[in-house]
Simulated assay, not measured.
Amino acid sequence: MKNLKFMRRNLIALLLPISSLLYSQTATIDVKIKGWTETLKTSLNAGVAAFAIVGAFLIFVQYMQGNEQAQKNFVRFVIGLAIFGLVDVITHVFIPK
């Protein structure tokens, strides 16, 4: 009987810090997810900007060189930029701040 009381006391002493630890982890996870979403949004913004600048420069160079494929590449570039930009807009609309 004495051993059982000792085990109960130890069990209660062990469970109290664990319960508070679980509560604090929930807040920590929320903070991490918020940080990840901000990183994702920033990365998408940078990706769209880089895609637009580099793609426009390459299309411009093709036009200046008189490449016959430049017009087709321009259409592909605009479609790709529209899709990439749409994904960026969707993440900004549906992922909360």
Results as ranks from 00 to 15, higher is better:
residue 2 K to N: 11
residue 2 K to I: 06
residue 2 K to T: 08
residue 4 L to W: 08
residue 6 F to L: 14
residue 8 R to C: 07
residue 8 R to D: 04
residue 8 R to P: 00
residue 8 R to W: 10
residue 9 R to F: 08
residue 9 R to N: 05
residue 12 I to V: 11
residue 14 L to S: 07
residue 15 L to F: 14
residue 15 L to Y: 07
residue 15 L to S: 13
residue 15 L to K: 12
residue 17 P to D: 12
residue 18 I to V: 15
residue 19 S to Y: 03
residue 20 S to H: 06
residue 21 L to W: 10
residue 21 L to P: 02
residue 22 L to S: 07
residue 23 Y to E: 01
residue 23 Y to A: 12
residue 24 S to F: 14
residue 25 Q to E: 02
residue 27 A to Q: 01
residue 27 A to S: 05
residue 27 A to K: 04
residue 28 T to A: 03
residue 28 T to D: 01
residue 28 T to M: 05
residue 30 D to T: 02
residue 30 D to G: 13
residue 31 V to E: 10
residue 31 V to I: 07
residue 33 I to A: 09
residue 35 G to C: 06
residue 35 G to T: 08
residue 36 W to Q: 12
residue 36 W to G: 08
residue 36 W to N: 12
residue 37 T to K: 10
residue 38 E to F: 08
residue 38 E to R: 15
residue 40 L to K: 08
residue 40 L to A: 15
residue 40 L to N: 04
residue 43 S to W: 08
residue 44 L to V: 09
residue 44 L to A: 08
residue 48 V to D: 03
residue 48 V to I: 13
residue 51 F to H: 11
residue 51 F to T: 07
residue 52 A to D: 15
residue 53 I to S: 13
residue 53 I to C: 00
residue 54 V to D: 14
residue 56 A to E: 15
residue 59 I to C: 06
residue 59 I to G: 02
residue 61 V to N: 04
residue 61 V to R: 15
residue 61 V to G: 01
residue 61 V to D: 10
residue 61 V to E: 09
residue 62 Q to A: 12
residue 62 Q to C: 03
residue 63 Y to A: 04
residue 64 M to D: 02
residue 64 M to V: 13
residue 64 M to S: 11
residue 65 Q to G: 01
residue 65 Q to H: 05
residue 66 G to W: 09
residue 67 N to A: 10
residue 68 E to C: 00
residue 69 Q to H: 03
residue 70 A to N: 01
residue 71 Q to N: 02
residue 73 N to E: 14
residue 73 N to A: 11
residue 75 V to L: 04
residue 76 R to L: 11
residue 77 F to S: 04
residue 78 V to P: 00
residue 79 I to K: 12
residue 81 L to F: 10
residue 82 A to G: 09
residue 82 A to S: 10
residue 83 I to E: 06
residue 83 I to C: 01
residue 83 I to D: 00
residue 84 F to C: 09
residue 85 G to W: 02
residue 85 G to F: 07
residue 86 L to A: 13
residue 87 V to C: 10
residue 87 V to S: 08
residue 88 D to G: 15
residue 88 D to W: 09
residue 90 I to E: 00
residue 90 I to Q: 00
residue 91 T to A: 12
residue 92 H to W: 04
residue 92 H to G: 03
residue 93 V to Y: 04
residue 94 F to P: 00
residue 95 I to A: 07
residue 95 I to W: 01
residue 96 P to N: 01
residue 97 K to Y: 00
residue 97 K to E: 02
residue 97 K to S: 02
